[in-house]
C-alpha cells in the first residue's frame, strides 16, 4: 500500500476494506433472502391451494351446477359463463384495440390530438378495475338496459382491457422495421396496402402474444363483474348474449366468503381450475413469442 504513495493514511484503507467487504456480503445476502422470500411466497400460495382443493377436484366438480350442499356443488355454470364472456369480450375488444393501435402507429400524424390520445390510453390503463364496473353498471346495465347479461359483462370487460390491447399491439407494430414500410410505400403501395400486406403479417405473432396476455386478464378480473351485479347462483348456462351468467372468479369469491370450511375447499378447487386455464393461455402466448424470436 505504501508503494501507492498513501503514506501514513494506508491503515485507513486497509481496515476499511475488510469491513466494506463484509457489509457488501451482508447486503448481498439480504437482497438474495428477500428474493427467495418472494419466490417462496409463490410456493406457499400454490401449496396451500393444492393442499386444500385437490381432493375436491373431479369430473363431477366440473360438470355440476352450484349447490347449497358442498358435496354436490360444481362450477359448470361458471365455466361456461367464463367461456361466453371471454369469447364475446375478445370479439369486441380485439378488432377495436388492434385498429386503434394501427391508427396510432401507422397513420396518426404527430399532432396534439395524437399525443392526447396516447396520454389518455396510458391513463386509462391505471384506472382501478372497479371503476370500470361502475361505468358498466350505469351505462350498459341501466341506461342501455342490457341487464346483467353476457353482453353487459363483455362490454364492461372490453372497455377495461382495451388500453392493454392497444399498448401491446402498438409494441408489436413498433418492432416492425421502418425499412419495410419505406420499401412498400416506395413502390407505390397505399398506406393500407403497406399495412395490410407487409406490416401486419410481420407483427402478427407479436400482436397475438400481447392480445392473448391481455385477454387472459379477463379470466381473473372479478371486481367489475361484482359491481355490475352478476348473480352467483345460476341454474342454467347462457344460450345467448342477452342471458344472465356467472363467472369462475365470482364463484370462487362467493365460496371463499362463506364461513363453512368445505366451501372454502371448493373455492380452492375452483382456483386450481382457474390457474390451470390461465397457465395454458399464458403458455400459448409464450410459445408464440418464442417462435417469433427464433424466426427473426
Amino acid at each position: 500500500m505504501t508503494s501507492l504513495g498513501l503514506g501514513d493514511n494506508a491503515h485507513l484503507f486497509q481496515a476499511n476494506l475488510e469491513q466494506r467487504r463484509r457489509r457488501s456480503a451482508r447486503f448481498r445476502r439480504a437482497c438474495s433472502a428477500f428474493t427467495w422470500l418472494g419466490v417462496g411466497t409463490l410456493f406457499v400460495l400454490l401449496g396451500q391451494i393444492l393442499y386444500q382443493g385437490a381432493a375436491w377436484l373431479g369430473w363431477d366438480f366440473l360438470t355440476s351446477f352450484a349447490s347449497r350442499f358442498p358435496s354436490r356443488a360444481g362450477i359448470f355454470a361458471a365455466l361456461v359463463g367464463t367461456l361466453w364472456l371471454i369469447v364475446t369480450t375478445a370479439a369486441i375488444s380485439i378488432p377495436v384495440g388492434v385498429a386503434a393501435a394501427i391508427y396510432l402507429e401507422e397513420y396518426a400524424p404527430r399532432t396534439r390530438l395524437t399525443r392526447f390520445l396516447e396520454l389518455n390510453i396510458s391513463n386509462l390503463a391505471g384506472v382501478p378495475s372497479i371503476v370500470y364496473g361502475l361505468l358498466g353498471l350505469a351505462v350498459f346495465v341501466r341506461w342501455l338496459s342490457l341487464e346483467r347479461s353476457v353482453i353487459s359483462g363483455a362490454l364492461t370487460m372490453s372497455v377495461l382491457i382495451l388500453p392493454v390491447i392497444v399498448t401491446a399491439a402498438r409494441e408489436a407494430l413498433r418492432a416492425v422495421p421502418p425499412s419495410l414500410r419505406d420499401a412498400a410505400l416506395g413502390v407505390g403501395a397505399t398506406r393500407w396496402q403497406c399495412t395490410w400486406h407487409h406490416v401486419i403479417p410481420q407483427a402478427l405473432p407479436g400482436i397475438l402474444t400481447g392480445v392473448i396476455l391481455a385477454i387472459s386478464r379477463v379470466f381473473g378480473e372479478t371486481a367489475p363483474l361484482l359491481v355490475i351485479g352478476l348473480p352467483i347462483f345460476v341454474s342454467r348456462t347462457p344460450s345467448g348474449l342477452g342471458d344472465s351468467f356467472t363467472v369462475l372468479p365470482l364463484q370462487i369469491y362467493n365460496w371463499t366468503q362463506r364461513p363453512n370450511h368445505e366451501f372454502q375447499n371448493l373455492a380452492a378447487a375452483g382456483i386450481i381450475v382457474l390457474l390451470v386455464v390461465l397457465l395454458l393461455t399464458n403458455l400459448v402466448a409464450v410459445v408464440l413469442r418464442q417462435r417469433t424470436e427464433t424466426e427473426s
Binding site: 409463490l42 400460495l45 396451500q48 381473473g220 371486481a223 371463499t256 373455492a267 380452492a268 390461465l278 399464458n282
Partner: peptide, 21 residues
C-alpha cells in the same frame, strides 16, 4: 418468470389466501 407468475395470479386468489392462510 416466477415473479411474473405471481403478478398474473387473479386478485380473488389473494383474497382466498388471506382468509385461509
Amino acid at each position: 418468470p416466477m415473479l411474473e407468475v405471481l403478478a398474473g395470479i387473479p386478485t380473488v386468489v389473494y383474497g382466498y389466501f388471506a382468509l385461509t392462510f
